[in-house]
Design a protein around this nucleic acid. Structure first.
Lengths: 343, 343
DNA sequence: TTGTCGTGAGAAAACCTTTTACCAAGAAAT
DNA sequence: ATTTCTTGGTAAAAGGTTTTCTCACGACAA
């Protein structure tokens, strides 16, 4: 009843046997015809293909994988609960691999090593061709050892072994984009409000900010939340001294908190202060008033490249190990003022 | 080089042959020992198991699946781009099925029928044991026909065929929870600000609201965004007449917009007005000031049940078709006032 | 006529596991 | 002593596909 009717007896998937019988050839000839190898007459090949298509034959990937040792399946392991990073990455991976007939197992393992091990084992049992390990922090490993697996592993946004290939966004580049944009539109006193000190990417962004902005103001470290954005604004405006005319925030949530706090103080964004965020998390950036100009880490592209790389490794093609930093992109909305510089 | 070293020659996975050889028994004996069937001496069985564990044998799921016609794999199809609904559902599915050795293919198909068909075909080729179709709207079908598949399909948060089993949250119950809570804490003039009229769940919630609240005020329909929350507050407070002392919002984003708008008007939440949201989307609800009391749809539990159901169907166990409405849960934060009624 | 070659296609092995059928040997029953 | 039953285990088939090997047959050259 569920899942399709049985028509005239037992429900059975169509196999290459059926194709062979219908086309009046042997199984091996059918196989060769469909895979365009072996030798046979053009007429035979065409007939087999036509018959196969007519009766709706689709090869059993399990059987094929058993022999070829390729399952056309890869695993995506993540500890990112909210999907903030994982989902765009997954979208990219999936988009890149669907053309190659590869599907993706998604496993969310929180931070539980046991669960992680179970999922890795399950993937291995299912003969995945490769694994992409992704996380929410560059400098944290997944809670499971991926170093001696019989399949290739590539890392995205999480720390891998030195001889592996890791994809990450170029945080320094992102910070540079943000600061340069702010200067181009005429801002000079730029403050950087960011996340916790112990994040690697926080350092990279802060360093790039200092270099690009001339290091006028010290960086303000805090947490990744809106409320920290609020507090930071309170701190700045409650202390004596010149106020900034621009903020570069470590993520969109902080930026949103800051924008809200500024509005509550009667300070106009973008007229009095320009604000740039980081992440381009649509749900936050686009709903802020005014919508945030922010740095996009191009996670989908990152996923696409990670997908193609793990595929290359699975197919035995050589891949240079190391860290690949992908450039960021500035998404201009309204939190900085005119959408062209020097307006 | 990538993916583990080849130690002493060709890298090869350990098969049951290796176990049999190492234990000095035949392949079939080894298989039976490991699967606890067949007859043999306890000593033999234990020895085989020990050897298998020692050399790290794990059965090849492809080979097993080829014979048993079970791949221990299910597909999760979704058109929810942001993962707002999908991710919690997926977490529930995964959690329920990992104990049964079942892994989950996640496929995001946007609203592209061709892409959907490709992914469904790929899943079928990989012999998934079943498919869970999930979406973001109860009354919208996925853009792909799932009605005559050779595997069972269950639906979550999207419309299925009449004879299938569909899981959804009980929107009426959620609305009832919200309104009852507001009345319990002494609120009487409750306004319902919600999403577009053409959502099925909007109707269910609105109807339940009217019934529970006595239908004093008309329902305000709009869109699912913060800005609509703002607008609605402006509309209410700009028009003459008594103001509400409570808002029941159709989702957390609307609620957040409303709370922000109230604050900007100098109206205190929760002192002057209590606000209840819907969805318990942590990222919005917890970051609102004050944090939102909101209705949780128990998506993870929904996912778990959907997972167990598709598993049951895959194993041929009978399952009653129809729609299952899962109860909601009120998550009390600070947007309504004291965390106990009648305080 | 015989030998060689090329062409088209089928047979069989391989991939790995599970399951069914079967066998040999010893124990118990007649 | 012969039959029957139980025990501990093996051999083989099945599942669907790909690939390698082999074969038959007709054409062509010697």
């Amino acid at each position: 009843m569920e899942g399709g009717l049985k028509i005239g007896g037992v429900k059975r998937r169509i196999t290459i046997h059926d194709v062979a019988a219908a086309a009046g050839v042997s199984i091996s000839t059918a196989s060769k015809a469909l895979n365009n190898n072996g030798r046979m007459g053009d007429e035979t090949r065409e007939r087999v293909k036509r018959v196969a298509s007519d009766i709706g034959f689709r090869p059993n990937a399990l059987a094929r994988g058993l022999l070829s040792k390729r399952s056309f399946t890869i695993g995506l392991l993540t500890n990112d609960t909210y999907g903030r990073f994982t989902l765009p990455v997954m979208a990219g991976v999936s988009e890149a691999l669907v053309d190659h007939g590869v599907s993706v197992f998604l496993c969310a393992i929180e931070d539980d090593p046991a669960l992680g091990q179970i999922h890795v084992d399950a993937m291995l049992d299912k003969q995945v061709d490769g694994i992409i390990a992704t996380g929410k922090r560059l400098d944290r490993r997944l809670p499971v050892d991926l170093s001696n697996l019989p399949v290739p592993v590539v890392y995205a946004f999480t720390e891998g072994t030195p001889d592996s290939v890791t994809f990450r966004s170029d945080d320094a580049h992102g910070a540079q984009l943000a600061v340069e944009w702010l200067r181009q539109i005429g801002r000079h006193r730029i403050v950087h409000i960011t996340g916790p000190r112990d994040f690697f990417s926080v350092h990279e962004r802060a360093d790039a900010y200092c270099q690009a902005a001339g290091g006028a103001d010290p960086v303000m470290y805090g947490v990744w939340s809106e409320s920290w954005g609020h507090e930071a604004i309170a701190e700045i405006w409650n202390r004596p001294g010149e106020k900034p005319d621009a903020l570069f925030c470590g993520n969109d949530q902080i930026a949103r908190g800051a924008v809200d706090a500024l509005r509550e103080r009667g300070i106009k964004v973008p007229d009095d202060v320009s604000v740039v965020g980081f992440d381009n998390w649509e749900i936050v950036a686009a709903q802020t008033r005014p919508p945030l100009t922010t740095v996009d880490m191009e996670l989908k592209e990152l996923g696409r490249q990670a997908g193609l790389t793990v595929l290359a490794l699975a197919e035995g093609r050589p891949v240079e190990p190391g860290v690949r930093k992908l450039p960021c992109r500035l998404v201009v909305r309204q939190s900085c003022g005119g959408d062209s510089p020097r307006e």
